[in-house]
């Protein structure tokens, strides 16, 4: 059971502490996203990282379109991992869409999670009446088209034949082991589920104490969107950091680490 779940989600373990921090990556990348932030917690925590099915080093053969037709299927991934590894009192750190996935997991099993830390969350990306999510449906359709273009011209074309390394497979191997590898079908359904999703009604149900880490300038989850999330979750803190962009854990790891650490020590 444990072994199969570890292979299935390419779970990796780091750190010497007792309490578990479970890191969940967002749309577009894999667990490598956490490599600048995670080492800071190795001393005091047990770190668990994974890739969603179809991302990183997981095999797309485990992908199930019905399961991943909503964020619930992804929340089930987190719960399945916690069950198989018997993780309790977990600090869950989710980036981007994994903030909402994490919230759904915490709502399902409130007793399993001690804290939820959301990096750049949004409860709804599409504008809806007075609510400003930042995007229109046609923006998302263009995004899906762009993903098509990149996978034709990039992932496929970088395969062994075009690179002319057919006789030196180790070179192609190196290329396919690049970061942030995702399966196109998986990524496109993930994009739809993420950007067309609306989790605003789930926010008040969250009981786990939570922190929203908000970048100063983030085109994907602007400040108002992060504030909306924090305001509508009971028992939630809001922390603005001066990082720019949607990936503060990559662009400003020190500040991100500091925000997480400060929250954990303050609420301990």
């Amino acid at each position: 059971m444990q072994k199969s779940i570890i292979d299935r989600y390419n779970i990796t373990f780091h750190g010497q502490g007792e309490q578990v921090i479970l890191f969940a990556h967002g749309f577009g990348c894999d667990q490598n996203m956490w490599r600048y932030v995670a080492p800071a917690f190795e001393q005091d925590y047990k770190l668990v990282m994974f890739d969603y099915i179809g991302h990183g080093r997981t095999s797309p053969e485990h992908y199930n379109r019905d399961r991943y037709a909503s964020l619930q299927g992804y929340a089930q991934d987190i719960l399945d991992i916690c069950h198989a590894l018997e993780l309790d009192n977990v600090i869950l750190v989710g980036h981007s869409v994994s903030s909402m996935i994490g919230a759904l997991a915490c709502i399902q099993e409130p007793d399993r999670f001690a804290r939820l830390i959301m990096v750049g969350p949004s409860a709804c990306y599409i504008n809806d009446g007075a609510y400003v999510g930042g995007f229109e449906r046609q923006d998302i359709e263009s995004l899906l088209e762009m993903m098509d273009g990149n996978f034709l011209g990039w992932a496929n074309a970088l395969g062994p034949t075009i690179m002319g390394n057919g006789d030196r497979p180790e070179l192609s191997q190196e290329l396919t082991e690049s970061f942030c590898k995702t399966d196109l079908d998986v990524a496109q359904q993930f994009a739809r589920v993420t950007f067309y999703g609306d989790n605003r009604s789930d926010l008040p149900k969250l009981r786990t104490p939570s922190l929203v880490i908000q970048s100063l300038e983030d085109v994907i989850a602007p400040v108002e969107v992060g504030e909306y999330v924090a305001k509508n979750i009971p028992n939630s803190s809001f922390r603005m950091i001066s990082a720019t962009g949607h990936c503060p854990h990559l662009s400003a790891p020190t500040e991100t680490v500091e925000a997480i650490r400060e929250y954990l020590s303050r609420t301990n």
Binding site: G26, R35, L143, N150, F179, D218, V219, H246, L250, S251
Partner: peptide, 16 residues
């Protein structure tokens, strides 16, 4: 759409 793609895919890829 490119802004989303840049933030979610390109920036992490280029950084890592």
């Amino acid at each position: 759409a490119s802004r989303i793609y840049f933030q979610t895919h390109l920036y992490p890829l280029i950084t890592l």
